[in-house]
């Protein structure tokens, strides 16, 4: 029975090196990941520096964006980014909450699951598809059936005229926001649904056991239970809307000035970069676009950081 005594034959000289190497490889990969994010920041700072240096604070306040005279002010795209993201959130948030609540609380299970899965799958559809639909289907319909009648019926100089003025071709800030809203809607619904399902069944049952109506259970038990998470999801949705490129570029009209109404064409940071970067000839033009990128990064980083911190706190 000693055929296998440890002293016998060929004990492999092993382990110590393999362990160190593998561990080092894993550590390097994790560090590389951080380096990627650091690289994004550093390249944006370096690339955009000339623009900040030349235009100073005016870069943020001026809305003159002129590649011919090499004067760049980013107020237009920055405001455009904030308005479209905000508008799309205003539209998408109640809808997404409604969908999630409906699926988790009211919808019969056999229907809720397929719809839930479908919503999750739709969240994965590339944004360029949403953009194309906006350009070819939504914008023309909107121009024809909404924008034109509104503009025609508005009295010149009235508040309606001011709010709705613009070329009635459907390519404007409002339609871009709507497309963004449709795009972030499945994403937000899916995460909300997941979030609501983390509420323990006993908590829910205890509330129903007291005689609460479904509305009261949701308002007083479920939403407070995951309140941090709800804000986290809103921030995630906002982050997506802020940084989205393709869905917006197709349809916002790409005008650099300060938008005058919600039916005016405008631009966002992402759409401006997407449209002009490869065609930028002057060094200052490139620098201005990269500087725009840095502004976008700072905004989204702040939003995403808040979102992640809140969602992390939600886990158990």
């Amino acid at each position: 029975m000693t055929a296998l005594a440890v002293s016998e034959t060929s004990i492999k000289p092993r382990n110590a090196w393999g362990e160190t190497l593998f561990r080092a490889a894993c550590f390097s990969a994790a560090t590389l990941l951080m380096a990627a994010l650091a690289g994004v920041v550093i390249s944006l700072v370096i690339g955009g520096w000339p623009a900040f240096k030349t235009f100073g604070f005016g870069f943020f306040t001026s809305s003159e964006w002129n590649p011919v005279t090499e004067v760049y002010g980013a107020a237009g795209p920055i405001v455009g980014t904030l308005i479209t993201a905000f508008l799309s959130l205003v539209v998408a948030l109640p809808l997404a909450l409604g969908v999630a609540v409906f699926l988790v609380e009211f919808c019969p299970k056999p229907i809720a699951n397929p719809i839930g899965v479908a919503v999750e799958l739709l969240a994965g559809i590339p944004s360029i598809v949403y953009g194309m639909w906006g350009l070819f289907v939504f914008a023309p319909w909107f121009a024809q059936h909404v924008q034109l009648p509104l503009v025609m019926n508005a009295e010149p100089g009235s508040w309606m005229d001011k709010l709705f003025s613009g070329v009635p071709n459907g390519a404007n800030i409002f339609t871009a926001s709507m497309i963004l809203a449709i795009m972030i809607l499945p994403y937000m619904s899916a995460v909300f649904r997941e979030l609501f399902m983390t509420v323990p069944a006993q908590v829910r049952e205890a509330a129903y056991g007291l005689g609460c109506t479904p509305f009261e259970v949701i308002r007083s038990i479920i939403v407070p239970y995951v309140s941090k998470g709800v804000i986290g999801v809103i921030m995630l949705g906002l982050g997506r809307a802020l940084g989205e490129t393709m869905a917006v570029t197709f349809i916002i009209g790409n005008a650099h000035g300060f938008p005058h109404s919600i039916f005016d064409s405008g631009s966002t940071i992402a759409s401006t970069i997407a449209n002009e970067f490869t065609e930028a000839t002057g060094e200052m033009h490139t620098a201005a676009l990269v500087a725009l990128g840095l502004v976008l990064f700072l905004i989204t980083f702040a939003v995403l950081a808040v979102a992640r911190l809140l969602l992390r706190g939600q886990k158990h």
Partner: peptide
């Protein structure tokens, strides 16, 4: 260090993709 990596990974997970394009352009 692990918490920092995880946090930055989460940020990178939903960072605007166009900025990644800019970074790789510069790189």
């Amino acid at each position: 260090y692990g918490h920092v990596v995880r946090f930055l990974n989460d940020v990178l997970l939903s960072a605007p993709s166009i900025l990644v394009g800019l970074f790789v352009y510069e790189l």
